[in-house]
Design a protein around this nucleic acid. Sequence first.
DNA 1: TCCCAGGGAGGAT
DNA 2: ATCCTCCATGGG
Length: 309
Amino acid sequence: MRVETFIAASDIAGPFNLNHTVHSGQTSEPEWQPLNNGYWDVELVNQRYVKYEVYSEGTPSSPRLRVAITSETVDDELCNATKKYLRALFRLDDNLEEFYRSFRGDPLVNAFSHLRGLRLMQASNLFESLICSICSQHASVKMWNLMAQLIKRTYGEPVAFPDGAVFYTFPKPEKLSAALERDLESICKTGYRGEYIIAASKLIVEGKLNLNHLRDFPYDEARRKLMEVPGIGPKVADCLLLYGVGFTEAAPVDVWMHRIVSKLYFGNTRISKEKAGKFLRDRFHKWAGYAQIYLFHYARSFWGKKSVH
DNA sequence: TCCCAGGGAGGAT
DNA sequence: ATCCTCCATGGG
């Protein structure tokens, strides 16, 4: 059964650009599958697996989303629950115009004009976001996406839909804690990260790491706790805190952010990655995560590797 | 062939 | 605190 519904412009605080958002390489989850002018993915809603297709409609300043929901049965309750999930996922309550207005004099405005409507994505599965974040270290966006897809296909459960689509769920910590390191490396292409994936999964299974508990602590304390886990350093911790837990003051600093912050705000002088992160948090406060994703996506899209040093 | 990718651990200084 | 080197793997 397939039912179409809409998320109205009145439910979206400011602009929204679906393409920019989906392609910005956020480690909340692997990138969605493209589907003629839209994207599709699957989520467990009200104990049922729901396939949803999302299409961008309306104008950039007054966007709306057309959502097609496929499941065995689809009623109003399931539609509303799915739309509620999508509103949280795309953080549609974040007032982007306020963000743009607050920093209209900042070097960031170039990214504003090119990437207007880009939004943070809030993961629904913290474990999936953590594993994606671990996979992202020292790997391209394309490669960590491949790793995550291979992990789903190798260790997840297949879910079939009435329209013939087959989706693989992300495995639970119990499953990955029992995985063999050589299988993660050779089958899922994780390389040396397989060891980190198994170690983190085991800590979760043993109850020594509780991802759902992180949001009950202040940002700094949650970050310290995460960094005690082997394989989780400053950047991976900030990725989970931003894209998973939803601390919007977190600003993951990777090689791209290190370059662009040094260039735009420090006259190309050498600064440490820690200093770059602290600078972003001090300057942008609760918008630091947004500033980070705008700069990251902008640098990756419009700079190219060779023009930056 | 060489260099790089949304880094982190362990070590030396 | 800052600076090495090594860690698997695929892509350019």
